[in-house]
Design a protein around this nucleic acid. Structure first.
Lengths: 225, 225
DNA sequence: TAGAACTTTAAAATTAGCTTAAAGAACTGG
DNA sequence: CCAGTTCTTTAAGCTAATTTTAAAGTTCTA
């Protein structure tokens, strides 16, 4: 779990870093709002500990900007004692929690744990065609309940086709979307991989063939012709 | 939104009820732990405001019992001022938040709003996959009742995987969540640590291998393929 | 029915991941 | 503060799986 601490007082920042590292968290530190904001939006953290009072851009502002750009990383805000308006503003700016200074490390840790405890909410996008499903999170591919094991390229090919189901995809199109840029591939490679995927996804099942050849144009995945 | 207030001081309970009703929440009140616990487990509330100090069964106990029976209703705990151990115990018992008395109504309202915003059903602090458990509080890791000793990095890696169980995590993803910022690590380091964790967590146990390699994509922790 | 378009097969080339060993860091107990 | 220990990281060799190519076989259609 990787945390970002945005706190201008070096003494506190250092203490937090050390204490949290003791608890086996990976911790990065920024000392002003600007820097903190940039770091937070550039990298994916699991939690941000954010001081309200910061030189330049303050904590509320940092928080608001991160939320505005769709960043949902949990934020624990450190507020000055008895500054209720900080708390209210902070929470309204999208902070998930606050901790009034001064606080004991033990309490901080409990708050951090509580915030980390949130759901595994990753919304697994599941691509489907007929009885075939592909879970983009777990990379699980199934047909009629039966699990299918694909290699990396096979998976990429199938995923690409499913994301464009019903459409006819030319070999060139497939080549440029499934292989990378500098990948000098022959069209035959696509044919071979289509065959591999068919062998695992279509052949073992009696019902409709999902992957269809459109002679002269390319391939298509879909339920019926 | 329906709230339950469990608070023995009638004056405070009444003030909360009125204030919250003003905000158009439906509010029920209980005056002791027993009654509060029964009410909370009988009916489905959207939020429970729970005083720690209660006659009979105290707030911590109420909280623990509700969580034990799988109730995930967000709980905001009211603690006595400067009783840090209350806070820690409360959070560890599964409370989602706390508010030290005395508090302004404005702050309470902000906390209530924040909790309501939060996705329900936050995961407990014990992470599990099959027979494997990891206690994020004590850092204890067990499989089939047997205690397993992990180093700090090994622990971090396993925790991260468990928090994202079922999902395929690329080496890069793992690198950026388990190691910090300036950590220049090779992907091979991840491979080595996965091997270490496997050696302690999977190898000594005959049953299913929990940590799976998804060739070309990364690693996944989960019960079955 | 000839030729283009696709399929299949099998072998060669490449790569990902595992293992091992050893160097360097960070702790620990005296 | 130092020596021994444990933990973290790198590097290199190995294996097995995947990717790619090439060539021979089929099918379709004009």
């Amino acid at each position: 779990m990787r945390l970002l601490v945005i706190e201008d007082e070096h003494r506190i920042a250092q203490a937090l870093k050390e204490g949290l590292e003791q608890e086996s968290y990976a911790v990065d530190v920024c000392h002003d709002g600007e820097d903190g904001y940039n770091t937070a939006s550039a990298d994916e953290y699991d939690l941000i500990i954010l001081d309200v009072m910061l030189p330049g851009m303050d904590g509320i502002e940092v928080c608001r900007k991160l939320r505005a750009e769709g960043n949902h990383t949990p934020i624990l805000m450190l507020t000055a004692k008895d500054q209720n308006h900080d708390i209210v503003h902070g929470l309204d700016a999208g902070a998930d929690d606050y901790l009034p200074k001064p606080f004991s490390f033990e309490v901080l840790l409990a708050r951090v744990r509580a915030l980390m405890r949130r759901p595994n909410e990753s919304i697994g996008e599941i691509l489907k065609v007929g009885e075939l499903t592909l879970n983009t999170n777990t990379h699980e591919v199934k047909r009629s309940g039966q699990s299918i094991k694909l290699s990396s390229k096979e998976y990429s090919l199938l995923e690409y086709m499913l994301r464009n189901k019903g459409q006819v995809l030319s070999k060139n199109n497939i080549m440029s979307h499934v292989w990378d840029f500098d990948a000098n591939i022959l069209p035959n490679t696509v044919e071979v991989f289509v065959a591999y995927v068919r062998a695992k996804v279509d052949k073992p099942f009696k019902d409709a063939e999902l992957i269809q050849t459109v002679r002269g144009f390319g391939y298509k995945i879909g339920e019926n012709s």
